[in-house]
Design a protein around this nucleic acid. Structure first.
Lengths: 234, 234
DNA sequence: GTGCCGCAGTGACTATTGTTACAGCAGTGG
DNA sequence: CCACTGCTGTAACAATAGTCACTGCGGCAC
């Protein structure tokens, strides 16, 4: 039908390896869609109509009240979002907002279910995705309740450094307020902690939104020394 | 093979409606097991070997560091635990401990996978369970980061009252320390908040571990006025 | 250029939460 | 009966995090 959709489906991990029948059902019913930066895909409590797979760009899943909100998770290309309420008959537990101009593939619920029936590997893949999601949430819950803001920040900075290929110069890439929401705090507190790290010579600002890590060991120590997966966690 | 297992499998929601082949694979390989109160089923970081379904009793999934820990979720009869790392190849994100003497059904990973292949409805059921798990975690994350301890406590008390059939006399049923961990705080703070509510005439102690709610409206107000599913959440 | 606006930086103040320490009480086992 | 243990109630104190208010900077539109 639509070759653009076809090509994109074949490039998405979620759908690779599916048999012809399952793939056909997806391709035939999926729709490509652009979202502007800041556009809302759905609100907390909305009824889901299908699955979204991010093709390019990124989406943040947020939950908030009054002025404050926090980012439940943020996803980039290849990730699926909105799977949660598709299977338990409920509504969306949080709001989805495009963080930048984003293209996503929308697969209607019925088409997805049919495809799942046609090839069990799809269910398998979705289970794996949901598993990762749960794992991430458990980690986040653990950190925000049991760690200080400074520890969380340190951990995040180290993580950025790692997935920048080990470079010690990292880019924030978004306003501080966004990072603050991801860390479960507010902009002012984040700025304060950054200032403290700077004052102690742990990091250094290198122009607009760029940081250089001067003392990685210090950050690692602050981040709690890797005990995330250690048995010490009782 | 084992009639006890057979009968129990047939009573568990997770496995009802499965076809003969899938059911047989489960029944043939599943094992019943008793856990003493306080017994650890697995630790954070352990490699999973299969799925547990709670037959009677209850299990708490906890995560902690040093002296403090918090309850990620607590599950009772009929719930499955330990599904998360079965599908994404990872390890357990948190520790499982029996809250009381508990009987559970253990289904080895291979048997589960085989059964999933034999009947897609099993995968469907597991997806639904994981979905609910994610939803619960998102809610918990939202509450612990954006609500005060008092609000969380108020919400919990109202919830207890509701699932006690609307009765205004509720039972804690476990030491305060356990409730504190579920609310993401510590025993002393919980005791303090209870004292405050008592002082304001919102609740009243009625003997060992029992409370009477005197002003339900006040609790509802404290709990944030039902906005959990409201659009006001941005 | 000028004014406007969003973003970062800071300081002072406050609120909430966590920590430590200790007292009382009920139940249990010797 | 007595010692011991686990649970609850409190009070004083410390630390962390959030709020408010204001400054300065840089870009953009007019």
């Amino acid at each position: 039908m639509n070759e653009a959709v076809e090509q994109i489906v074949d490039r998405l991990d979620t759908f690779t390896g599916l048999n012809v029948s399952a793939r056909a059902r997806i391709v035939r019913n999926a729709v490509l869609r652009w979202c502007d930066a800041g556009e809302t895909l759905w609100l907390t409590g909305d009824t889901p109509r299908g699955l979204y797979v991010i093709v390019e760009g990124s989406i943040r899943i947020i939950r908030g009240i009054g002025g404050r909100q926090h980012v439940v998770h943020a996803e980039g290309p290849g990730a699926t979002i909105g799977e949660v309420p598709l299977f338990d008959g409920g509504t969306y537990p949080a709001t989805a907002v495009a963080a930048e101009r984003t293209r996503c593939l929308f697969v209607p619920r019925d088409a997805l279910l049919a495809a799942m029936g046609a090839d069990p590997r799809l269910a398998w893949e979705l289970l794996s995705q949901l598993g990762r999601r749960v794992r991430a949430l458990v980690d986040q819950l653990y950190r925000t309740t049991l760690w200080t803001v400074r520890s969380r920040l340190a951990a995040r900075l180290m993580a950025r450094s790692v997935d920048a290929g080990g470079s010690h110069t990292i880019t924030l890439g978004s306003p501080q307020s966004a990072l603050a929401e991801e860390l479960g705090t507010v902009r002012e507190v984040l700025a304060r902690e950054l200032a403290t790290l700077r004052r102690h010579g742990v990091i250094r600002s290198v122009g607009k939104g760029k940081l250089e890590i001067l003392k990685p060991e210090a950050l690692t120590r602050l981040a709690g020394g890797d005990d995330v997966l250690t048995r010490r966690t009782t």
